[in-house]
């Protein structure tokens, strides 16, 4: 039976991987125009709190509130982005890092709304809601041999996988379009891009806001998958963790962030004894990557090699 294969724990880890991939992509998209934003944990928090509060206080359907969370994060992104993008490089990184801290301080102190450091609990969960809907429709998970929690985790995972596929599709297509070329041009040579008629301010704000929307979206999903959030979920450590996804996996290519998020989520799960030293290892990884492979594990030459060997493999099987 299907039920025998589906370990809820594995399903949950897989769901976390999916959310982390979205976060990895949020930093990738901003990096693709050559800017490092360390504020994505803050945007994630804005998305999470917005969506959670809308469902708790106003009984808004999760689908609507998640989108609202992403939009609010994006609006804040525009507000922060326009002044910050007058800054380049490290200045932007620090300003956005500071922004993340301000958000966290507000989450802790605006107790009437956010319940302070304790955080919000009892957030409607995507899985449970879907289970309710299925039950109302007269469907019982046991009919297909699944326990309730298996069914719930499986549904959540499927939804997250679909979201990821859509998001990756979006970004891959964008990369190949006029907008993607403008991002890449700015990243490679800002002055030359400007001389070619690229409105660099517009495209920088655009890529920054896309990063904000995507991390806000990830945050909203996170809230409704966990059912519980607190300011600690969106701290500096989260910002660094998101950075690691891109830096370790490879910040030049979309597959880098995906690989980085997957690997970094799995590592502490697979190597249990490591999880205590997790952040120390993160730190060491950042130092070593910068010294030996600053472009990350996956880069363009590696992808080309993989493609070549795939083609060769096909030829081999024909012969």
């Amino acid at each position: 039976m299907l039920g025998d294969f589906l370990n809820p724990y594995y399903l949950q880890v897989a769901s976390f991987i999916m959310i982390n991939i979205i976060l990895g992509l949020s930093i990738y998209v901003t990096l693709s125009s050559g800017q490092l934003s360390l504020g994505n944990a803050g945007f994630m928090g804005i998305g999470a709190y917005t969506s959670a509060l809308l469902t708790i206080n106003y009984d808004m359907p999760i689908v609507v509130s998640v989108i609202a969370g992403a939009i609010v994060a994006g609006l804040v992104g525009i507000l922060i982005g326009i002044p910050s993008l007058r800054l380049t490089g490290v200045y932007l990184a620090i300003a956005t890092l500071g922004f993340g801290e301000v958000i966290r301080v507000f989450m802790i102190n605006w107790e009437s709304l956010t319940k302070g450091a304790v955080g919000l609990s009892g957030i409607p969960q995507i899985g449970r809601e879907l289970l309710k809907v299925s039950r109302d429709a007269g469907f019982n998970p046991l009919d297909i041999g699944l326990k309730n929690n298996q069914y719930v985790y499986l549904l959540v995972l499927i939804i997250l996988v679909i979201i990821n596929i859509l998001l990756i599709w979006f970004l891959v297509r964008q990369n190949k379009s006029r907008v993607g070329r403008a991002f890449a041009a700015i990243k490679m040579d800002e002055k030359a891009a400007e001389a070619m008629g690229v409105n660099i301010t517009y495209y920088k704000v655009l890529s920054f806001v896309q990063g904000a929307v995507i991390s806000g979206f990830a945050g909203a999903l996170f809230a409704h998958v966990m059912g519980y959030i607190s300011p600690a979920d969106f701290s500096y450590h989260r910002a660094v963790e998101i950075l690691i996804f891109a830096v370790f996996g490879g910040s030049e290519v979309i597959w880098g962030s995906i690989f980085g998020a997957t690997f970094m989520t799995l590592m502490p799960e697979v190597l249990r004894f490591i999880s205590e030293y997790r952040y120390m290892i993160y730190g060491a990884i950042l130092i070593l990557m910068m010294a030996f492979r600053p472009q990350g594990i996956i880069d363009v030459p590696l992808l080309q090699k993989l493609q070549l060997s795939k083609r060769r493999g096909k030829h081999g099987s024909k012969n």
């Binding site: 379009s177 006029r178 041009a185 490679m188 001389a195 070619m196």
Partner: peptide, 22 residues
């Protein structure tokens, strides 16, 4: 000051940025 990691064609396509609007 070329976009050094882009292909030759892509460089020229960026040149066409102002003559396109998508």
């Amino acid at each position: 000051r070329l976009f050094s990691q882009m292909t030759v064609l892509e460089n020229v396509l960026v040149g066409g940025h102002t003559r396109s609007k998508s």
